[in-house]
Design a protein around this nucleic acid. Structure first.
Lengths: 150, 150
DNA sequence: TGGTAGGTGAGAGCAGGTATCAGCAGGGCG
DNA sequence: CGCCCTGCTGATACCTGCTCTCACCTACCA
């Protein structure tokens, strides 16, 4: 995957070392189709310490390589990220996540700023629903994808 | 506070008992001006068990008496709730929370539904910024309010 | 090739939350 | 009045997600 190479060179640019643990975590993360927990990765890589997975996920989150997905119950998951600010549309049945950026949040934020005299610095928006496949009954349940909600 | 009495009668209507522990938790929660953790309440009521505070907070959350506030780092806090669906505008400096309902999220959601063939079921929106007082330098820091972020 | 800063795994520890369990209390019933 | 049933309680163990510490290792550069 060319994406992987791009990420690796960004790691190098930032002065991070390319260790076997990091490469294994990167490859595993990149292979996941849906959101996942640190524990999912850790279980798939028993030779890598749990702390290392957490450290690497933190690093990748800072680099915008992965992003955090907030589920409806308030728990957090991870998934490969498109770069830059975006939001998630999460299927509550199969766990598929669709990113979106072209949204009206900024106009909403402007409106809020005018109404409240807050200086808006950021926001968090996640949208939940059922994807087309799941509505048609052909979507894989979250369990089968290994990305189950708790 | 008349609010407290209304909540108490709603508890009774639902067949819940009015125990000293519940009344103490309710009074403490109602007295908080900003968001708080379960631990804050637990420390203010050492005579009430931690598990009881968690149980009562869960009950109050289900009853829409309190709601959960998502902080920028993904951690959850609680605060007294206005009833019904609403969002939070959180001051990142002093922890003040302003509710808002009159937002354009529904039009955004409609737009998303059209674009993606998801059937939208819900969403989570939190907005972060600095309130007027904090920008003017007169806002109380979160610490002083006993509602500090970690 | 060797030195070293950065990375590692193991394991302890912490925060937030749930499960379990024996005991208490208050309301209904005989 | 006394009994029982049910809901509630505090204590405590446990769980999950995550961070910290520490001694050891190693990728990378001179």
């Amino acid at each position: 995957m060319a994406d992987l190479e791009r990420i690796i060179s960004r790691l190098e640019e930032r002065g991070h070392r390319l260790t076997p643990a990091r490469l294994a975590i990167l490859a595993t993360v990149a292979s996941r189709k849906r959101y996942f927990t640190v524990d999912d990765i850790s279980r798939m890589l028993p030779q890598v310490g749990r702390a290392t997975v957490f450290r690497t996920m933190k690093l990748l989150t800072e680099m915008d390589v992965v992003c955090r997905v907030l589920l409806e119950d308030g728990s957090l998951r991870y998934q490969m990220s498109r770069r830059g600010h975006h939001h998630h549309l999460v299927c509550t049945r199969c766990g598929a996540v669709q990113d979106f950026t072209d949204c009206d949040v900024s106009s909403l934020v402007d409106q809020l700023a005018r109404q409240t005299d807050y200086e808006i610095e950021g926001h968090w928006l996640e949208v939940y629903g059922r994807c087309g496949k799941c509505r048609a009954g052909t979507g894989a349940p979250a369990e089968a994808a290994g990305a189950a909600a708790p």
